[in-house]
Amino acid sequence: MSYTTTDIEQLIPQRAPIVMLDTFSRIDEKNYASELTIREDNIFCVGDKFAEVGIIEHIAQTAAAYTGYKHLVEADSVKLGYIGDVKNCRFTVYPSKGDTLHTTIRIVSEINDITLITAETKVADQLVATCKMKLATDESK
């Protein structure tokens, strides 16, 4: 299963210019991957570099795409999600315009409407960021 730019909006509520995913794919039940190529006009670029907040947004959208995918598979509608918590964030390098972010997330646990993930973002083999993130899904929407 793989989603690309044209159909990724099935999984997340964001729309251009806020969409920070080019692709999203399932590796296995607990691991998912995404990519984003940083273009000239990306709103999270500061000078030639991609800011931390953009990396966080990219990771959050990867996690949101997972919950969207899960609901689609369960033949449910895509729910609204919120970031509940971000911790143990480590940034090791600022990506540059033209770089492609490769992110993998691991689903650590899911209880009720809360999902805990760990994320790792790389550019080629260079580690860019790691973090833990909690997402809450609004089941009423």
């Binding site: 918590d85 650590v108 646990s109 209880i111 009720n112 809360i114």
Partner: peptide, 18 residues
């Protein structure tokens, strides 16, 4: 409800039990 998932995650990470 937010921290309950941390406990479950900790058990998964430390003991490999989901």
């Amino acid at each position: 409800s937010l921290s309950l998932v941390d406990m479950v995650g900790l058990v998964d990470e430390e003991f490999g039990v989901t």
